[in-house]
Structures are given as C-alpha cells and as structure tokens.
C-alpha cells in the first residue's frame, strides 16, 4: 500500500470520534492539564494539540502531567529537522516515549527525556529538556537502537500484515476459528514488540532489522485466544512483511 494511503487508513482506524480504538486498552480526555479521565480508555487530551506555552510544573520527581509531557514533546520535535517522518509518514518524528530521566540527570529540576524515531533517516533521537527554561540540555541521534513500538507503529504493522501477500498464517487461522475472514484490524487485539535478529542471526530479508525498525506482533481474538504469529515480522522502515518458511527460525 502506498505510504500516504496507509497513513490515512491508520489514522482513521486509530482515532474514531476522538477516541483511540484497538490494541489492548483502547481509548478517551479532558484538557491536558493533569485532569485526565478516570476511564481506563485513552482519550484525546483536550483538542489533542501540544501545548505551546509552558504549563504549571510539578515537583521534580512527580509523574508528568499530560500538559508537561506535551510541552516537552513539542520542544523536542521543534528541535529536530523538518525532514523527519513518523510512522504515518507525517512530517514529524515518531514519538516513542517522554518521561522523567533518572534522578541524577534531573538534578532536582523538572526535566524530561523525549525519545523519537525519524523514519526518514532511520535514526533514533533522544533529547533531554529542562522544562523551567525550555532549554535542551542534550540531544543525541543514533542508529541501531529500537525501543518498544508506539501504539501507532503497532497499528501500522498490523495493517501491513493484514494486507501482505502472501498473508501470514494468523489470517487463515482467524478464518478457521471464527468462520469469517479477517478484514479489519479492529477484529483482533494486538501487542507489538520491537524486533531484531539475535547476534549473527537473521535471513537476508531480516538482517537489516535493528538498523531499520521492525516489529513482531502478538495477535489474539477478542476472546483472548492467541493466534500464531511467529511466521513473520514487519519492517516498518521498508513497509514490508517478511514471512519465514514453515518451521523456519526467526533468529536462525
């Protein structure tokens, strides 16, 4: 599927009427100033936009408010090249995490470490910010380090797997178990995991995983029954699904 079509399809699947659907703990929110909803569903925080102004800051070791996190992410993304792309092929890096750094790095100040992946260059960016001043304390870019996938990345990987030819085994398994074809991602539950072959392993098709961003999926029916998903990995950098031969070893 062309990138731009995939991006719009995934965006539609993830955000329906402001709610995050899919995955294990889907959806819903209030303005992002520490007033998050009491539901166990994720909701769009306010209008979903990143705060442009510095919000009220909490104690140095307190959990980040949504507004603090959003403010830090905004500062971090603004410091990255405009050429960056996220997993939806939008013009920004894919934000993977934003949280407190270790205590020594905090130095009793309100600081945030933002981790983002730029698909345009297959590079991981890690930016340490000082929230009171908005100053960037350090910024590093590197390849070969692959943190856990974001919710959007997992969703994109699932969509790619569903439309791959030939299809992975779980698609047929779904049909056998339910009597109906698996047509849409929201018919299953999914957890994504960053993947790279063990040292010295991998096939020619997967050996670039690690340098490039690859994901394996754990897929289950809504009933909780897991499907077999060990016959493929998804290379998000290349937007391809690599199938292993029957009995093949992913790390072999």
């Amino acid at each position: 599927m062309p990138r731009h079509l995939l991006a719009s399809a995934v965006a539609a699947a993830l955000l329906v009427a402001g709610s995050l659907v899919l995955l294990w703990t889907p959806s819903p929110g209030a303005p992002g100033n520490g007033n998050a909803s009491s539901s166990d569903q994720f909701e769009v925080a306010g209008d979903g936009a990143l705060p442009a102004k510095r919000p009220p800051l909490r104690e140095p070791g307190a959990p980040l408010s949504t507004a603090e996190r959003g403010y830090a992410i905004g500062l971090a993304l603004a410091s990255l090249p405009d050429s960056g792309r996220d997993v939806l092929d939008e013009t920004r890096a894919e934000v993977l995490a934003a949280d407190l750094p270790t205590p020594d790095v905090r130095e009793d100040r309100r600081r945030v470490q933002v981790t983002a992946y730029d698909y345009a260059e297959d590079r991981l960016h890690q930016i340490l910010l000082d929230l009171p001043t908005g100053r960037i304390i350090s910024a590093e870019a590197l390849t070969g380090v692959q943190p856990p996938p974001s919710t959007a990345e997992t969703q994109v990987a699932l969509d790619l797997a569903l439309t791959a030819m030939p299809t992975p085994a779980f698609v047929d398994q779904f049909r056998q178990l339910t009597g109906a074809p698996l047509l849409a991602a929201d018919e299953v539950r999914v957890i994504g995991a960053a993947w790279a072959p063990e040292d010295g392993g991998g096939s020619s098709a997967t050996r670039t995983c690690g340098t490039e961003r690859c994901v394996q999926l754990l897929v289950a029916l809504p009933s909780g029954q897991y499907l077999s998903t060990d016959d493929f990995v998804v290379n998000l950098s290349r937007r391809v699904v690599t199938l292993f031969p029957p009995g093949g070893r992913r790390h072999g």
Partner: peptide
C-alpha cells in the same frame, strides 16, 4: 491513580487509571 499520556500521530491521548 496513574496519569498516562502519549502521542498518536499528531495528537496527545491520555488516561488516569
């Protein structure tokens, strides 16, 4: 209570559980 938030695409999502 645990406040959580992250980005999906261009939007922040959140929950407190």
């Amino acid at each position: 209570p645990v406040e959580q938030s992250f980005m999906i695409g261009s939007q922040m999502v959140e929950r407190t559980i």
